[in-house]
Design a protein around this nucleic acid. Sequence first.
RNA 1: CGGAGUGUGGCUCAGUCUGGUAGAGCACCGCGUUCGGGACGCGGGGGUCGCAGGUUCGAAUCCUGCCACUCCGACCA
Length: 518
Amino acid sequence: MQRALSVSRMTGNRSTFPEWYQAVVREADLAENSPVRGSMIIKPWGFGVWEELQRDLDRRIKETGHQNAYFPLFIPLSFFAKEAAHVEGFAKEMAVVTHHRLKTVDGVLGVDPEAELDEPLIVRPTSETIIGDAFSRWIKSHRDLPLLINQWANVVRWEMRTRLFLRTSEFLWQEGHTAHADAEDARAETMKMLEVYRDFSETTLAMPVIAGEKPENERFPGAVATYSIEAMMQDGKALQAGTSHYLGQNFAHAQNIRFQSAAGELEYCHTTSWGLSTRVIGGVVMTHGDDDGLRLPPAIAPRQIVIVPILRDKPEDAEVLAYGEALAKALNAQTTLGERVRALLDVRGARSADKRWEWVRRGAPIIVEVGPRDAAAGQVTYMRRDRLRDGEKIASHAVPRDTFIAAAPGILAEIQANLFTEAKAMLDANIRTGIKTFDQLAEYFGEAVDEDEGSAFKGWVRAPWSRPTGAALEAVDARLKALKLTLRNIPMDQNPISGPCLFTGDPAVEDVLIARAY
RNA sequence: CGGAGUGUGGCUCAGUCUGGUAGAGCACCGCGUUCGGGACGCGGGGGUCGCAGGUUCGAAUCCUGCCACUCCGACCA
């Protein structure tokens, strides 16, 4: 039997994992590279996934009291320049608009040198500055606070090296921006949205994560504190899947975001920002994909149940189609995971075997076949994408039609839970504790990293540390970098201190996560 | 921007060393037989061989320069 993909994800050779990832993205019709360097085309099936998860996250954002708005794509350079650390952090990765007109000279189309802008415009890499500017005008009184705004937008960061979904020059995301009267309220907001991301990731994406605070060297430019959720991919590397920042009064000072307190004093706001991007689609691929392609959690599958009719260009086809249509209708009338079931009868004129495998590669959670025999017997034959194979054999189940209709919402919920459970087991089993010294860490991850061979699966290490800062932290970072490792975050859920600092030998204050990362 | 590799039809690649009418498999179109675990036969469409120069009677092939992509670094959601 031919396999769905020509590359396997689990070969023991890490260098093939990126190839497997790209194969799944392509074979599942999620996205493709575009003619524009580093920018991708998100295809209908991939964008459908984005729309489903966007709808779910948008609901959560609104339920926590935020309102959507939209701010400009272009940010005046002067706006950006107001917060020093922010400028420094993004200076190397910005797209800049300098002209507003083209001109044909000697038959060659080029930029009109006379159309230079007085002030360059930055294509937003993030919108703290342009939204902060609006906040400075919107906020007058303590009665205007908290101001809770979110926008869905595209942003551009001029990355050196790009990968579909995981890192593209242009990507889609939501960015929340809020202003508060005091630090306590702003910090509570930061933590609240971190928790929204954690729950969204685990419940909707079925992607288990570790939520925690980023060490100071990994902070968002201009932030006082940065928090992240980190997910473990099937190659053991960490993917930062969402971030939430407490910005203190840094941006408020830079942009004059002030309010008059109840006591009549002028005070600077405390602000936050938080974002989650199309990157999580890459995370879903690398969390749930297998050697047959993508496996989508039902909550974000554009089609949760795909019915493939077995057609033979014969009169009984009409009966099969009618049977399939009635089945789709009955399924769509139900709810699962709090929403209408999304079932599709695939009536395209392709061979049914090809259609079935296309839906396997795309990750449709349940694939149903209905043929003349099913129609005659009043039954359906279905397969679950999360448990497609029993060894080499495809595991399919024939059940009475009404039984299936009644059971389908529950099966979808079970698939959703099952994908999470599988991924959670993988995460839990691969966080190594008990490493006491840096030498042990180096030994564990392999001191010499062969660039061609890659290295075997290692997962993450969780170890006590003394939370060094400044130059001491930079030294730690440099030692880790030599092992291609990074500090991921300091988990919110802390264990009792199990020993001295892995790096310095000083008394530890907490655990930190160490991993190779995307 | 550094290191390595690759550019030949939608995809995977052969052909390049040794210059001589651009190929294969899959995909696509037509017809027929099929269809319940990735069909088969016959016929067909589609490529200025990454781009620009050069050498030559003749360049996918040799030379020079450039570009793009992939992987590994640096950067980063």
